[in-house]
């Protein structure tokens, strides 16, 4: 319990986060590349085609991880918003700001890959009566709203807290996305994967899990990288940032500012 408490206190310090998460950023980035390449290659080449859907079934290996992580990103936003409002933790606002574009991109990508999958499989790119499609579209609009709201409020602190409220209010959409498949049946079939029961054969679900894990690692990498950039922006005038730029802070190593290595593992 003491470990958690200490971690909580440490999270009050952007500086601690910046230095502590640097190696994590590098490792998560590498891991996500490895996992996504493996899963994709496996899914495209070795996994069997579906009995009914044929080869278009392979799209599942990009579509499903994308939408699952897109929802997880939003849930993370909700948590960050809650932490920001209740405990005024600076890092929560940093996370809230940093991850919105990524969530937006993933949700849009999920909708796109879903549409592309839908055409050969169910005959249509889009169906306005499918509850999961519509609630995912709503999710995309919520991301737009978060972005617009932050831009419209000039005070950075107030903007963060307003976005926190919107993020929390929008959380109701997540259960709708998950359970709409049970409540109404139009396009999406019932769940083929739950935590306890998997109705797909292993040759099919293992690459899916690999890609899912890889996508989560990518989420971690992007989150940490963008949070660290945001921290630098907010703390630009502090002495610790100056020291880090000069290569004096712990974990700094040599000061090489070629674009490839910047902030990537330092």
């Amino acid at each position: 319990m003491g470990v958690l408490k200490r971690l909580w206190h440490r999270l009050g310090s952007p500086r601690w986060f910046f230095h502590m998460m640097a190696p994590w950023q590098w490792w998560l980035g590498m891991l996500s590349a490895l996992l996504l390449l493996t899963g994709t290659f496996w899914g495209l080449v070795y996994a069997p085609a579906d009995y009914q859907q044929g080869e278009s079934f392979r799209i599942i290996y990009v579509h499903v991880p994308t939408v699952i992580v897109a929802q997880s990103v939003y849930m993370a936003l909700g948590v960050a918003g809650f932490v920001l409002l209740v405990w005024r933790m600076k890092l929560a606002d940093v996370a809230l700001k940093a991850i919105v574009p990524f969530g937006m991109a993933l949700t849009a990508l999920g909708l796109f890959t879903g549409a592309v999958w839908g055409r050969p499989t169910w005959g249509t790119y889009w169906e306005w009566t499918d509850a999961r499609l519509i609630s995912t579209l709503i999710l995309l609009f919520l991301y737009f709203g978060l972005y617009a709201l932050r831009e419209s409020i000039s005070s950075a602190e107030a903007a963060g807290r307003a976005c926190a409220i919107l993020a929390i209010v929008g959380l109701v959409n997540i259960p709708v996305i998950k359970y709409s498949v049970e409540w109404w049946t139009t396009l999406h079939q019932g769940e083929t994967i739950t935590l306890t029961r998997i109705r797909m054969p292993p040759e099919m679900y293992i690459p899916l899990l690999i890609n899912l894990l890889g996508m989560y690692c990518l989420f971690g990498y992007v989150l940490i990288a963008r949070m660290r950039s945001e921290i630098l922006r907010r703390e630009r005038d502090t002495t610790w940032v100056g020291a880090w730029l000069r290569g004096e802070e712990e974990g700094a190593g040599t000061d090489n500012s070629n674009g490839k290595g910047a902030l990537h593992g330092r």
């Binding site: 992007v222 990288a225 963008r226 660290r228 950039s229 630098l232 922006r233 730029l245 500012s257 674009g259 910047a262 902030l263 990537h264």
Partner: peptide, 10 residues
């Protein structure tokens, strides 16, 4: 992400 980081650093 990476370009943002490196241009911020510069």
């Amino acid at each position: 992400t990476r370009m943002e980081a490196s241009s911020l650093r510069k």
